[in-house]
Amino acid sequence: MNCHTRFRLHYIDDSGSADTGYTTFTWLALAPESWAAAQQQWLRFRADLYARHRIPPGARLHATDLTSGRSRPSLNPDFSVRTHGLTIVRDGLDVIAAIRGLTVGTVYRHGGHPSEAKRELYRALVNHLDGELHRTGHMGMIFMDGDGSDHRYAGAHRELHPDTRGLIEAPVFRSAEHDQWVQMADFAAWSAYQSILRKPTKRRFWNWYPRTLGPLDPHGPLAL
């Protein structure tokens, strides 16, 4: 695979809440030839977390847990997620923002039944990404958290026109417990959701997405 490969990998995670009425999807996209270098950047960050906080490189990082104080991924019994969780997420966003060749995007929807809104937003997302791939002459694939038991995702792909589609296959599901890219997408999705929701009690998070990943998002969060 050479530097002229016209293919994009899309790592996607969702966010939102039935209580707020928001549903979001955020993606990290890059070419396969950039994948190894990007993975190494993230793994250096994970190694640093182990050196500083004894958080094993294989431990799951979940932004909601880290920012709310509900997780203690460290082997250090004195580790306080309330003290260090916010810094870990912010540092992780900075690492993602520094990955060369990476693009980021977010789509969202407000209102409607949560399950229906999520299904319809994913369909809109698939059409949006497929249209971008078609316009740029690329092909692409989607990777996301899950076990594949929710068939509404694959159905959205089957609806794409076979003669023009750029997204190949159905989405590939990976476990967030073990996949670093899905965890990275989780950080991005959490920060995008905070920038869209703009909850007054979480004002300090409003600008995390625009200040870190915003320069990699050519459209800004899109209402679809």
Rank of each mutant, 00 (worst) to 15 (best):
Q194H: 10
M144F: 02
T24G: 04
G146L: 02
A124H: 05
L43W: 14
H161G: 10
T24N: 07
S68A: 15
G166F: 00
D217A: 04
H219S: 14
A98V: 02
L102A: 06
P221M: 00
E177T: 05
R8S: 11
G69W: 00
A223S: 12
H219I: 00
V126F: 08
I168V: 10
D179T: 05
D179Y: 04
S68N: 15
L133Q: 06
N76I: 08
G140R: 06
G58D: 12
H53I: 07
D94V: 10
H62Q: 12
L9V: 00
K199D: 15
F79H: 04
G111L: 09
H157A: 06
R100C: 14
Q40F: 12
I196W: 08
H10S: 13
A31E: 11
L28G: 03
F45E: 04
E33N: 13
Y11V: 07
W27H: 07
P56S: 07
D163Y: 09
F79W: 06
T23H: 09
R123I: 07
H151A: 14
S34Q: 15
H128R: 14
L43I: 13
L160Y: 03
V104C: 01
R54S: 08
S115Q: 15
E177G: 13
G220I: 01
L43N: 13
W190V: 03
P221L: 00
T212D: 08
L66K: 05
V81S: 15
R203N: 09
A29D: 10
V89I: 09
T20V: 02
S74A: 02
P57S: 03
D13C: 00
G214K: 00
T24M: 06
R152K: 13
S68H: 14
N2Q: 09
L30Q: 04
H84S: 08
L61A: 01
K118Y: 01
R123E: 15
G16H: 00
H84W: 14
K199L: 13
W181V: 03
M144Q: 06
M1F: 11
H161E: 15
M144D: 01
W206Y: 08
F79Q: 01
H4F: 12
V172L: 11
P73C: 07
T23N: 08
G21N: 01
Q41D: 13
L129S: 01
R82L: 14
D14P: 00
Q180M: 14
T26I: 06
H110M: 09
Y108V: 03
D94I: 07
D150C: 05
H4T: 15
L43S: 15
Q41L: 13
Y209Q: 01
S195P: 13
A31T: 00
T106L: 10
P77H: 09
W35M: 13
T106N: 12
G220W: 06
I168D: 00
F143P: 05
F173K: 03
R123G: 14
R60V: 09
D14V: 09
H110L: 13
R198Q: 14
R90M: 12
A170K: 09
V107H: 07
T23F: 02
Q39D: 15
H178N: 14
R135G: 10
D65M: 07
V126D: 02
Q180S: 12
R158H: 15
Q180C: 11
V104W: 02
W27V: 07
G105V: 10
